[in-house]
Write a protein that binds this DNA or RNA. Structure first.
Lengths: 193, 193
DNA sequence: ATCGTTTCTTAACTTAAGTGAACGATTTTT
DNA sequence: AAAAATCGTTCACTTAAGTTAAGAAACGAT
């Protein structure tokens, strides 16, 4: 499990054994059961996540309805906005599958970053990269129709269609579950005709 | 003009005079005329921007149509995804008003960051903050209707409605100009009734 | 194995966005 | 100053998403 983390890190910086051990001493690794809610609206969390295995999802509850806005799977990292802003969380985080995560917080990061400036560099690189990726995702979302977004998802993250319930995918695509059903039927029809 | 930049920076780290001078020696400041295209699709830019005054916009041209995805105004910074990925740009950047910008590139940043680790920290903080903000924007976009998005924009960035042409706002809201016109008429009607 | 819940699909109807076209109004170019 | 292009609005029509409701299938818990 640790190797997965170190392999990931090696894409950004190379760690000495000392640095690796510093990380390992932090007790980062956690296994989480499917269905576990890691964060609820209104809570003040300080935790950042990195998915080693499994799938977690962020969602809002608006007018009693769940609105799923993101899925994080293998090798994806994220820090909830509430951690950055220091305000109570607007959304929920839950575990869609039995998962293995690293969970860290600003205190731990500060400690490692001051001891090893290399980590500071890695954090900057990683968040710049995530910012750019998310920008592209947002742009694609804005400039395409629900149907195009679905087809796009089929291309880019086909695994999600398998591991995630339709109604959660629907709000991820910005539409209602019924519309996703209909849209899929429409596409299937086109394929045959 | 420089004060604006240093005031902004001071929200993240405090600079010594030496550090300030290191920045000033970089020739960061540029004035750009309205209508100037700073980046075109297919180009391989290395430039990051920080808006001191004015407004710049990013847009795609898809099937001959401009699709505006972002506006950057006073005190907003951004690095085009193509700079991070090292691939040719997918989009255009143009100047909506006469503007004053700082323009930097990874080389300049690397130089300053190694000389003054403080900058590295600031860059990390800034991109983490932007990542979180953008996440929230994306989530709001996904979870609301065009009409809600328009009303939301009215609340959060009322200045944009004044300084930006309607048809550019429309694609920024993910709809056609005609739909924005109609939607506004609809809202006005509701207000009176 | 069964009961109950959740999930997915289908259908009929409503509402809003997309489309194509026309019209002034404004701005830019010549 | 005239001509051309751009911009915003409106209209009629088309298309797709939202809504409400119902039923079948899959899943979980007991």
């Amino acid at each position: 499990m640790q190797d997965i983390l170190f392999d990931f890190i090696s894409k950004y910086v190379s760690l000495t054994e000392e640095e690796q051990n510093a990380l390992l001493s932090l007790d980062l690794f956690h296994t989480v059961k499917k269905g576990t809610v890691l964060l609820r609206k209104g809570q003040q969390s300080r935790d950042s996540y990195f998915v080693l295995k499994g799938c977690i999802r962020t969602y809002y509850i608006i007018d009693g309805e769940e609105k799923t806005t993101a899925f994080y799977t293998e090798l994806e990292a994220f820090t909830p906005p509430c951690v950055i802003s220091g305000t109570p969380s607007e959304y929920y985080i839950s575990c869609i599958e039995d998962s293995i995560l690293t969970i860290s917080n600003p205190g731990m990061e500060a400690e490692v970053n001051t001891k090893f400036p290399k980590f500071e560099i890695m954090c900057r690189m990683l968040s710049e990269e995530l910012l750019a990726k998310q920008r592209v995702d947002f742009d694609e979302f804005k400039t395409s129709s629900p149907e195009q977004r679905y087809l796009n998802l089929l291309q880019k993250r086909p695994d999600l269609l398998q591991r995630v319930p339709q109604h959660q995918l629907a709000s991820y695509l910005g539409i209602k579950p019924q519309s996703l059903s209909r849209l899929r039927a429409r596409i299937l029809g086109k394929g045959k005709a």
